[in-house]
């Protein structure tokens, strides 16, 4: 093989590699579509005692069951709901907890257009992070809102939870 052919082959190989990198999901692309993120359950008294938020990566059925029961809390007088199904081959679950607050008026919600924004190996997810307005009267019961989500697996090993102002509220890492 002469040198010129080698150079062309290398250049072609490089071009091909670059093109494939550009088209591989998870590399500075959005995992778009409603199916990439969906809400399983929301809760108001999810039991977190710390005031700081947290996000928990769930990729095992037993973890999911534990988290789901935690969201349900001790409710009496009703049949416990079924544990939701998550296909852990292709999906994970994510429990986001807002932290304990002294009153009602706090909530977490998944915006309708929510999606995972994946850059390198980190996913970004923006949630509606609601706190009460100042100068309103609030019910004096402590609350610990949370959201249990279903996410499609992808080329990410951590998820950064943002509020709608772009502030990082929590980070969850695979296996933690």
């Amino acid at each position: 093989m002469n040198t010129t052919h080698l150079k062309r082959s290398c250049i072609l190989t490089l071009l091909l590699l670059t093109a494939s990198c550009q088209t591989m999901p998870g590399n500075n692309q959005k995992q778009a579509g409603q199916s990439s993120v969906s809400s399983i359950r929301a809760g108001l008294h999810c039991g977190r005692e710390q005031a700081t938020p947290a996000a928990t990566w769930i990729d095992k059925p037993q973890q999911l069951e534990t988290s789901f029961k935690k969201i349900q809390g001790a409710i009496l007088g009703a049949k416990p709901p079924e544990i939701p199904k998550v296909d852990f081959r292709n999906e994970i679950a994510l429990l986001i907890e807002m932290g304990q607050h002294p009153t009602l008026g706090y909530s977490l919600a998944l915006p309708e257009t929510a999606s995972l924004d994946i850059r390198k190996d980190q996913a970004y997810l923006t949630l509606r992070w609601t706190s009460p307005q100042p100068d309103v009267s609030l019910a004096q019961t402590t609350s610990s809102p949370c959201l249990l989500l279903r996410l499609k697996r992808g080329e990410y090993t951590s998820i950064r939870i943002l509020d709608e102002e772009g502030n990082t509220q929590a980070i969850s890492r695979m296996g933690q």
């Binding site: 359950r41 929301a42 809760g43 008294h45 969201i71 349900q72 809390g73 001790a74 409710i75 009496l76 007088g77 009703a78 709901p81 002294p102 009153t103 019910a139 004096q140 019961t141 402590t142």
Partner: peptide, 30 residues
């Protein structure tokens, strides 16, 4: 086996409908 909250009547709408249940809550509200 239950948290030391105040037990009373509530509803639960997490399943889409409102179920009439009972829960332990805490606060000066209670």
């Amino acid at each position: 086996g239950y948290p030391d909250g105040v037990l009373s009547t509530v509803g639960d709408d997490s399943g889409g409908n409102i179920d009439y249940v009972f829960k332990f809550l805490q606060g000066t509200s209670m």
